[in-house]
Design a protein around this nucleic acid. Structure first.
Lengths: 140, 140
DNA sequence: GCTGCTATTGATAATGAGTCTCAGAACTTA
DNA sequence: TAAGTTCTGAGACTCATTATCAATAGCAGC
C-alpha cells in the first residue's frame, strides 16, 4: 500500500483536497512496477469495485506527475504509460520491439555527458528521455 | 530537390509503385531541415498547388520511415514530427520546453555505452530515442 | 501505344487517447 | 447547519491518425 503521506503532502502543496479517489489511484499505481496506461489503471480500480471515472484517473495522474510522484513514459505506441517513483533511483528504459517487454537501465557516464552537452550550449537541462528499442534475448 | 533515385530504389525494393504524390512528398520533406509534422507537409504541398490528400501524406511518410529515408520524432506534444535522412550522420535532439526550438546533438561515447548496455543483456539494439528537454539560452 | 490487372489515391468516416463541461456530490469553514 | 468551494462522473468533444471504398493511374505484356 502506498503511503498516504506523500500524496497528502503533494495535494496540500497544490491546494487540493485529499479524496478517496485520489488515494486509490495513487495506491493502484504503486501496487505494481509494471508500466500501465491510464485505461489499465481505470479498469483495475473498477474491477476492485472502486467508484471512479476515467476523467478522474487522468486528472489525478496529472497531479501526481506534476508533483513528481509518477513518471509519464511515451513509448511511441500512442498511449502514455506511467510508473510510480516510490523507489527513488533514476533510470531509463529498454523496450523490446517484438514482445513489448520493458527493462530498466542507468548509466552514470551518460548522465554526466548529457549535463555537459547542455551546459556547453548554455542551456539548462530539465528532463530527458532515453529509450533503447531492442530485440530481447527471448525474442531473438 | 531530392533525388528521385533513392526514392525509386526504395519503392522498387518494397514492390511499390513510383507515383507523383510519393515523389512530391519526398521532395517536400527534403526541402528543409526543419522538423515538421504531417499537417505542415500537407499544407505546404497544397499551397504549391499539388493535388494530394492527408491520407496519402500519412501513407507515404510511413513508407519513407519504413525504408529509412525519414525519421519519425515523437516529442511528446501529441503529433509526430519528421526529418529526412539525406545527410547521413546520426544525431539526437535537444528541445526547449519554453519556445519549442529543436537542436541536434551527437556523442560518440553515449552511442558506445548504449551498445554495451544492450549487448551485456544479450539484446540487439534496433534504434533509440534520446531527447534532452532544456531551457535554451534565449529563454533563460 | 493499347489492355487489363492491381496498387494507389482522395474524400470522408471512423478510431481512440485524452480533455472539457457542467450539474450534482462532498468537503470545509464559520 | 448553511454557504461557499472543490471534486467527481457521464458523456460530449477534440484532434491526430487510420480505415474504407469507389474511382484513378502505374505498369507489364501484347
Amino acid at each position: 500500500m502506498a503511503s498516504p503521506n506523500q500524496l497528502k503532502k503533494a495535494l496540500k502543496k497544490e491546494g487540493l483536497r485529499y479524496t478517496q479517489q485520489r488515494q486509490s489511484i495513487w495506491d493502484e499505481m504503486c501496487a505494481t512496477d509494471e508500466h500501465r496506461d491510464a485505461e489499465e489503471i481505470y479498469l483495475s480500480l473498477r474491477n476492485e469495485g472502486m467508484s471512479v471515472s476515467r476523467a478522474t484517473v487522468y486528472r489525478t495522474i496529472d497531479v501526481l506527475v506534476k508533483n513528481n510522484l509518477v513518471r509519464k513514459l511515451e513509448l511511441g505506441d500512442g498511449r502514455a504509460r506511467y510508473e510510480h517513483k516510490m523507489d527513488l533511483e533514476h533510470h531509463d528504459h529498454l523496450i523490446c520491439v517484438q514482445c513489448g517487454k520493458i527493462e530498466e537501465f542507468m548509466d552514470e557516464t551518460i548522465e554526466e555527458i548529457q549535463e555537459k552537452i547542455v551546459n556547453n550550449l548554455g542551456f539548462k537541462l530539465i528532463r530527458h528521455i532515453h529509450q533503447l528499442f531492442v530485440i530481447c534475448n527471448n525474442c531473438r
